[in-house]
Simulated assay, not measured.
Amino acid sequence: MADRTGGEPQIDGRSTRWDEHKARRQVDLVDAAVALIEEEGTRFRVQRLAERVGLPRSVLYRHFKDRAALDELIRRRVVDSFMRRMEPTLTFEGTVEDAVHRVVGAHLDWVAQHPRLYAYMGVAEHAMGDGSLVADTKTAIALMLSERFGEVLKALGVPQAPIRSVAVGIVGFVDTAVNQWAHDERREQSEEELRAMLCRSVWAILDATLRDLGVEVSPQQRVSDLGPH
């Protein structure tokens, strides 16, 4: 209803409070859905969620436009969880070898700790691309890596290098390998063997790239000694 004095339209406080309540309730329901998937597996059913939170299914759906909207919020929550695990690892702490192990290990640790959430991303009706981590997430990680690589290379006197393509390739390689391992019922490698193989491979790519640029770096050198910190 407009203000009779010609000011801004007044906002109904009751409507605002309801919107805030609905938003909080939606977050709680998505949290419950994620917990249900972690406990029971990827074939997530809304009826089970309704039973878990003690609401009729029809009431639960008042908080979401439809099943697709709920699934999208769950996917976002899964990706957010993964990104919160990965972002702190992209630092200059320790040696080059430490940095490689930290980033690769964080990816593999998250998948090992949340296998059902990871698998949920690849279930047919909820699949995103090839069933591995969402493409935008991989791109975001690759861009963060390329920024850090670029800073180090500038400090080493190499201001221009096609490092973004290398970062995208590394992230894609690690994610594809982990995705295949996670879905393989007859794994040819243990988790520790996969971790070691990925770290060796990532270092080999970095080493070859640096040598092509005329730079030699020992995996035992501290990253902070190579670039800004």
Rank of each mutant, 00 (worst) to 15 (best):
R4Y: 06
E8I: 11
I11L: 11
I11Y: 01
D12L: 07
G13L: 13
S15E: 15
R17S: 00
W18K: 12
H21E: 11
H21L: 07
K22M: 13
A23M: 07
L29A: 05
I37K: 02
E38M: 01
E40D: 13
F44K: 08
V46T: 14
V46S: 00
V46E: 06
L49N: 03
G54D: 07
L55T: 05
Y61H: 11
F64Q: 03
F64V: 01
K65R: 14
K65T: 12
D66L: 07
R67L: 10
R67Y: 13
L70A: 03
L70W: 03
L70T: 02
L73R: 15
I74C: 07
R77K: 15
R77T: 09
S81M: 05
L90A: 10
T95S: 01
T95G: 05
T95H: 00
E97C: 06
D98I: 02
V100C: 00
G105S: 01
H107A: 14
D109I: 03
H114Q: 07
R116N: 13
L117Y: 02
L117K: 03
V123A: 10
E125D: 14
A127E: 14
A127H: 12
G129N: 09
G129W: 09
S132T: 10
L133E: 02
L133T: 04
V134I: 10
A135P: 00
D136C: 06
D136Y: 04
L143C: 09
L143E: 15
L145P: 06
L145I: 06
L153M: 14
A155M: 06
V158N: 04
A161S: 14
A161V: 11
P162G: 08
I163D: 09
I163L: 10
R164L: 11
V166W: 02
V166R: 04
A167T: 07
A167Y: 05
A167R: 04
G169H: 05
I170Q: 00
F173R: 12
V174P: 06
V174Y: 03
A177Y: 03
N179S: 14
Q180A: 15
D184Y: 09
E185W: 07
Q189K: 13
E191L: 13
E192Q: 14
M197T: 12
L198A: 05
L198N: 03
C199G: 02
R200F: 07
A204N: 08
A208Q: 11
V215E: 00
V217Y: 01
V217H: 03
G227H: 07
H229E: 13
